[in-house]
């Protein structure tokens, strides 16, 4: 029977703990609303800061409606860009983990439902491309998965949950450059909350939400959090 290894310790089955408390939702550079990019947590990230009232920005039905609308827009633009042939064949929806990944998969499913065409999906983890690692510390990586056909000469639509400073998108663009050479890159987000720090804008926006920097926007999705909803907390500036 193996004995205890001095200084080592027996195997434990405690789930990996992330430092949830050490990043602020008020820092645009952190792309508020992506806190769960640090966590493979089993518990939904639903806690709200003391003293603030969470206001529901989008309900589950709203989220579904918004996704449907973006799916229609994708189909329309593809048709407009390539009249007379199946423009959706060139489309790749690439989600930015954590919540961009399931959003991309949902969008693809809706596009397929509305158009009958199949849509390629991928994910691109941007952690190793972030410019704030020194400031915020390292974090666990998420998968980077490209469709079999790759992304060369195709239309890549990056999918993310919240657009804030734009730094995540910039990191994703850097990552894409290493993964291939798309014909064009567009951006789809569930919520645009403003406060851009880079010249980046979204091509598809589920909902524009004017916020103050002090506020926090939290996106919860069934796949990661057990429920679909978008909350805004904190004092409006």
């Amino acid at each position: 029977m193996p004995r205890a290894w001095p200084g080592g310790g027996p195997p434990r089955s405690v789930p990996y703990r992330r430092r949830r408390s050490d990043h602020s939702f008020n820092d645009p550079s952190s792309e508020a609303g992506k806190e769960a990019s640090l966590a493979r947590s089993s518990e939904p990230a639903r806690s709200t800061a003391p003293g603030s009232t969470p206001g529901t920005l989008l309900s589950a039905a709203d989220v579904a409606r918004v996704i449907d609308r973006i799916a229609h827009q994708l189909i329309e633009r593809a048709a407009a860009a390539h009249p007379g042939r199946d423009g959706l064949a060139d489309l790749v929806l690439v989600g930015i983990p954590t919540r961009g990944a399931p959003l991309a998969r949902r969008l693809a499913a809706r596009v397929e439902a509305f158009s009958g065409a199949t849509v390629d999906v991928g994910t691109v983890d941007i952690t190793l491309y972030r410019d704030d690692l020194r400031r915020r510390g390292v974090r666990a990586l998420e998968p980077t998965l490209m469709p079999d056909g790759g992304i060369d000469d195709r239309l890549v639509v990056l999918v993310d949950d919240v657009l804030f400073s734009g730094r995540s998108v910039r990191a994703a663009l850097d990552a894409l450059r290493d993964l291939g050479r798309p014909q064009a890159v567009q951006l789809a987000v569930l919520v645009d909350r403003g406060h851009r720090e880079l010249p980046i804008r979204a091509d598809y926006v589920g909902k524009n939400v004017p916020t103050s920097r002090a506020q926090q926007v939290r996106v919860h999705l069934a796949e990661t959090d057990g429920v679909d909803e978008v909350l805004v907390t904190g004092e409006a500036g």
């Binding site: 434990r12 405690v14 990996y16 703990r17 983890d125 190793l128 666990a140 990586l141 998420e142």
Partner: peptide, 19 residues
Amino acid sequence: LDRDDATLVLDTAAQIDQA
């Protein structure tokens, strides 16, 4: 390395490999 740290290293290596 405790078990979580060691697992994190291996998971990170796997993600890097995949990426």
